[in-house]
Nucleic acid binder design. Structure first.
Lengths: 147, 147
DNA sequence: ATTACATGTAATCATTGTAGTTACATGTTG
DNA sequence: CAACATGTAACTACAATGATTACATGTAAT
């Protein structure tokens, strides 16, 4: 199991839209950087648009960020691209036996534990913005050039 | 996407083995409480055994915990049942375009972020033991009886 | 040793999600 | 209308899950 790469592609897209803000970020252009099919990008762009993170219009080439860089967190992206249903990162086995002490109670015991693990993960994502990502990409780029 | 229910089943199994420690916890018995096929249970039991969490022997009915209750964390179970490959909870899109500033650096930027989100989740799991689960199941059971 | 029964494990199946591809309807602009 | 972009649907290949069946292997009691 693994969380869909739509998440990392979503981050990639937003970052590139920002860095290329003086140019036109069409689905084909973005697909060229991500290295995938433009239709895949358009599908993800649709999700980002629906979540209010980018502005795109049918027929008009290019996407723009719909919010300030520092107002888009990785959690926003995570939720936007639907990689995990709300509160369902962990799946709980259905229909345990109600005639057994454990079967009867295990779900109610486990659920809050899974929920808090999931929250811990989401809090980390919430504390990182696309601005942070953009800055870090530039940092890494500098290091590359120096070598 | 969702983390396999093998994890919650694994917790169920360990909890039940403990609560039924005066009886015999065969795969069929455990399957009855989880409400699934005994072969599914045996497969998971095999993983828990390999991780040193339980003792089982071919031909001999029943499983026992191989460690103290308080020495088995949910993280141990999580790793035992192989729901997520090490450091691969998030998948990163492969082969971004090296001729683009973002494509060239995005993986190195994202990886540590994903890693720390994953760590946050694992730390929560590490702080809960099967002992805690057993106690909570009993607590919940008391409340049920009262009603 | 044979019977009875448990674990270990492989093969198969239906279902689901992913990622990619093609195709085309819809929308915009010159 | 021509050229081109987005929005979507349909289809494919692939992988993981969970269930099921079947059977080899191992243990113990009679």
């Amino acid at each position: 199991m693994s969380i869909s790469s739509r998440f990392s592609v979503g981050i990639h897209i937003l970052t590139l839209i920002e860095i290329n803000k003086d140019g036109v970020s069409s689905s084909e252009y973005l697909a060229g950087s991500v290295n995938t099919n433009p239709a895949v990008i358009r599908k993800i762009m649709g999700m980002l648009k629906k979540a209010g993170l980018i502005k795109v219009q049918p027929g008009i080439a290019g996407a723009e960020l719909a919010k300030d860089l520092s107002d888009i967190t990785l959690l926003d992206v995570y939720k936007a691209v639907n990689v995990v249903k709300d509160n369902e990162l962990f799946s709980i086995h259905e229909n345990p036996n109600p005639d057994c002490t454990v079967g009867r109670n295990i779900q109610n015991t486990i659920e809050p534990l899974f929920f808090s693990a999931q929250s811990a993960l989401e809090k980390v994502l919430e504390n990182v913005t696309i601005e942070d990502v953009v800055k870090d990409v530039f940092e890494k780029e500098k290091l590359n050039v120096k070598r």
